[in-house]
Simulated assay, not measured.
Amino acid sequence: MRKRLGQVWRAAGEPAGVDRITPRETPIALSFDGRPHTVLMASPGDVEDLALGFTLTEGVARLEAIAGVEIRVQPGGLVVDIRLVEGATRGRPRPRSLEGRSSCGLCGVQRLADAVRPLPKVSEGQIFTHEALQRALIALEGLQPLGSLTRATHAAAFASADGRIVLVREDVGRHNALDKLGGALARAGVATRDGFVLVTSRCSFEMVEKVARLDCPMIVAISAPTDLAIQKAQEAGVTLVALARADGHTVFSGAERFGRASLPLEGRA
Rank of each mutant, 00 (worst) to 15 (best):
L143E: 06
L181R: 01
G163Y: 08
D179H: 04
V168A: 09
L133G: 08
A161Y: 14
R187T: 14
R174Q: 12
E131Y: 01
N176D: 06
S160Q: 12
A152I: 02
V168N: 07
A157F: 04
D171H: 02
L167W: 10
D162A: 12
G182W: 05
A157P: 07
R174E: 11
T153D: 00
S148K: 13
L185V: 13
R135D: 02
V168Q: 12
I165D: 03
L140Q: 09
A177V: 02
G142A: 07
H175V: 04
A186S: 11
A155I: 11
G173I: 09
L133W: 01
A155W: 09
P145L: 08
T150G: 02
D171N: 05
H154D: 10
D171K: 00
G163C: 09
L146C: 01
E141T: 06
S160L: 15
L178E: 13
R174S: 15
G183I: 15
A188C: 09
V166I: 15
A188H: 14
L149N: 00
L167C: 13
I165W: 02
Q134Y: 03
L185D: 13
D162M: 12
G147T: 00
T150C: 04
G183W: 08
A156Y: 14
E131W: 03
A184R: 14
Q144K: 13
A188S: 15
A155F: 10
A186M: 05
A152V: 01
H175S: 06
S148D: 00
I138L: 14
G142E: 01
R164C: 05
R151E: 09
G182E: 10
E170D: 08
A139R: 10
T153C: 03
A159K: 11
A188E: 12
G147Y: 07
L133F: 08
Q134C: 03
R169K: 14
A184W: 08
P145E: 04
A188M: 09
A139V: 11
A157H: 08
G182M: 08
T150R: 11
L178V: 11
A177Q: 04
N176R: 06
D171F: 05
A139M: 10
G163K: 12
L137M: 12
L181H: 04
L140V: 07
G173E: 01
N176P: 04
G147S: 05
G163A: 11
A177K: 00
G147D: 01
L178G: 15
G142Q: 02
A132N: 04
G182L: 13
V172H: 00
S160E: 04
A188Y: 08
G183P: 03
L133I: 14
L178T: 13
G183R: 00
L178H: 08
Q134H: 11
V172G: 01
A152N: 07
I165P: 15
G173T: 06
V166C: 14
S148Y: 07
L167S: 14
S160A: 15
H154A: 10
G147W: 07
E131F: 00
A139Q: 05
L143T: 08
L140R: 14
G142F: 06
L146P: 00
Q134G: 12
R164K: 13
A136N: 07
D162Q: 13
D179E: 12
Q144C: 01
A161R: 15
S148H: 07
K180R: 10
L137H: 09
G163L: 09
A155C: 02
H154R: 11
A136C: 11
A155E: 02
T150V: 09
A177H: 04
L137G: 02
L140P: 05
A157D: 10
A186H: 01
K180W: 11
L146R: 00
Q144I: 02
A186P: 08
